[in-house]
C-alpha cells in the first residue's frame, strides 16, 4: 500500500470516529501503525509532522505525551495496529468513577477482556506508560480518568468495535447500579468466551477475507 493511501485511510477513519462521536476534535486520540510506521490524523499532533515515523524512532521533543504513549504501546504490543481514546459518554463516566468494569455482557468479555481496569496516571508520572501497558494486559481497553477509554486492536474495524462494546459494557454497569446491581459473568466463562472469540472468529474472518 502506498503511503498516500495510508494517509487517506487515516483521514477517512478519523472522520468515521468523529461522526460516530467516539472522539471529538477537542478530545480523544487516534493513530494507526502500518509496517512499523506511525500515522496520526492531520492537525492532531501539533506542529511536528509525525507521519511515517518508526515505532522505535525517537520522536521530536515537542511531541504530545499521548503520541509517545501510542508509540510505546505499539512497540510493546505486537498484536495492535490501531489505538484510539474513546470519549463516549458512559465510558467517560465509568472512567471518572474509577471502578474496574466487570464483564456484564458476553460481547464485552469477548472483545474488551474479563474486566476493563482503571489506571490513574499523571502525564508527569515517569512510569505513566508502563502503568497503562499493565492495565491493558490481556485486554483490549483500559479506562483512564479524565481521558476516557483507550482501545486497541489489530484493525480499525476491530478497534471501533472495542470502543462500542466498551461503551455498552460501561452503560450496563452504570444502568444496573440503579437496578439493584448487575450479574457478572463468571471469570471462567469470560475467559472461555474471549479465547473462543479470539481464535475461532479471527480464523473465520481470515478464511472469509481470503475467499
Amino acid at each position: 500500500m502506498e503511503k498516500r493511501d495510508i494517509r487517506k485511510e487515516v483521514a477517512d477513519n478519523y472522520e468515521v470516529l468523529l461522526s460516530a462521536g467516539v472522539i471529538r476534535k477537542d478530545g480523544g486520540s487516534f493513530s494507526m501503525q502500518f509496517e512499523g510506521e506511525l500515522y496520526f490524523p492531520d492537525g492532531q499532533t501539533g506542529p511536528s509532522d509525525l507521519y511515517g515515523k518508526r515505532i522505535d524512532e525517537k520522536l521530536p521533543e515537542q511531541t504530545p505525551a499521548w503520541c509517545r504513549l501510542h508509540q510505546y504501546l505499539y512497540r510493546q504490543r505486537k498484536d495492535i495496529r490501531v489505538l484510539l481514546t474513546s470519549r463516549l459518554s458512559y465510558t467517560m463516566t465509568a472512567a471518572c468513577a474509577g471502578h474496574e468494569v466487570p464483564p456484564l455482557l458476553d460481547d464485552f468479555a469477548q472483545l474488551v477482556g474479563v474486566t476493563a481496569r482503571v489506571v490513574y496516571v499523571e502525564p508527569t508520572d515517569p512510569v505513566f506508560f508502563r502503568k497503562i501497558l499493565k492495565g491493558m494486559r490481556r485486554r483490549n481497553a483500559v479506562l483512564i480518568p479524565q481521558m476516557g477509554g483507550l482501545c486497541a486492536a489489530a484493525s480499525f474495524e476491530d478497534t471501533l468495535a472495542v470502543s462500542q462494546v466498551l461503551e455498552k459494557g460501561c452503560r450496563a454497569y452504570i444502568d444496573t447500579a440503579f437496578l439493584g446491581g448487575g450479574f457478572r459473568i463468571s471469570w471462567i466463562e469470560s475467559w472461555l468466551m474471549r479465547l473462543v472469540f479470539k481464535f475461532k472468529y479471527s480464523n473465520l474472518k481470515n478464511k472469509l477475507s481470503g475467499s
Partner: peptide
C-alpha cells in the same frame, strides 16, 4: 439484537 438499554436490563437479570 445486542441493543443497549435491553442489554443493560438483561445484565440485571430482571
Amino acid at each position: 439484537t445486542h441493543q443497549q438499554a435491553a442489554s443493560s436490563v438483561s445484565a440485571a437479570r430482571m
